Simulated scan of single mutants.
Amino acid sequence: MADDPSRTGDSADEAADARGTDPDSAVGFDSATSETRSERDDSDGEGAESGQAGGDARSVVVPTAVYKRVTVFSTLIAVVAVVGGFLVLDVATDRATAELSEIDPLVALAGVGLIAFGAVTYAFSTRFRAEGMGNAKDDTDEPSNNG
């Protein structure tokens, strides 16, 4: 970059070259992380075009009506799947009294699979937030009452 004729050669340009950024451009390149400044700013989840409020890049902001439906139905599905999974697992093990050779492994795996499906469904549903909802982890204006 030293033989670029458009450079003036002052110390600010040399420092920018060392950092891998161009001081004249709005989008710089960070050579340490191999990402542009705009990519790093957008990955915060606070970019205007990301459609997300708050700092969690994995959360999805939806209208309040959608949030209510997602919360109700995903919680219902998760509870039914987990309880059903334990019931199926209970049937497979004959109320946990069956000998190891008497356990039906396919039914037991189906029970464990239902439990895992319920957990994944609930975890997925926690990604949704309604418009205007904040993230408790991002609130710093509340005093700490732990001693």
Score class of each variant (00 low, 15 high):
Met1Asp: 09
Asp3Leu: 01
Arg7Pro: 01
Thr8Pro: 06
Thr8Trp: 03
Gly9Pro: 00
Asp10His: 14
Asp24Gly: 08
Ala26His: 14
Gly28Trp: 00
Asp30Asn: 13
Ser31Met: 06
Ala32Glu: 02
Thr33Glu: 11
Glu35Trp: 05
Glu39Ile: 08
Ser43Gly: 12
Ala48Cys: 11
Ala48Asn: 11
Ala53Asp: 12
Ala53Arg: 09
Val62Asp: 03
Pro63Val: 09
Val66Phe: 02
Val66Glu: 05
Val72Tyr: 15
Phe73Gly: 05
Ser74Met: 08
Thr75His: 14
Leu76Asp: 13
Leu76Gly: 15
Ala78Ile: 00
Val79Pro: 08
Ala81Gln: 00
Gly85Leu: 00
Phe86Ile: 09
Val88Glu: 01
Val88Ile: 01
Val91Asn: 08
Arg95Asn: 07
Ala96Gly: 06
Glu99Gly: 14
Glu99Ser: 14
Leu100Trp: 07
Leu100Gly: 11
Ser101Leu: 10
Val112Ser: 08
Gly113Phe: 00
Ile115Gly: 06
Gly118Ser: 08
Ala119Val: 14
Val120Thr: 13
Val120Gln: 12
Val120Cys: 10
Thr126Val: 11
Arg127Val: 02
Arg129Tyr: 04
Glu131Thr: 09
Gly132Thr: 01
Asp138Met: 04
Asp139Gln: 15
Thr140His: 15
Asp141Phe: 15
Asn145Thr: 13
Asn146Ile: 15
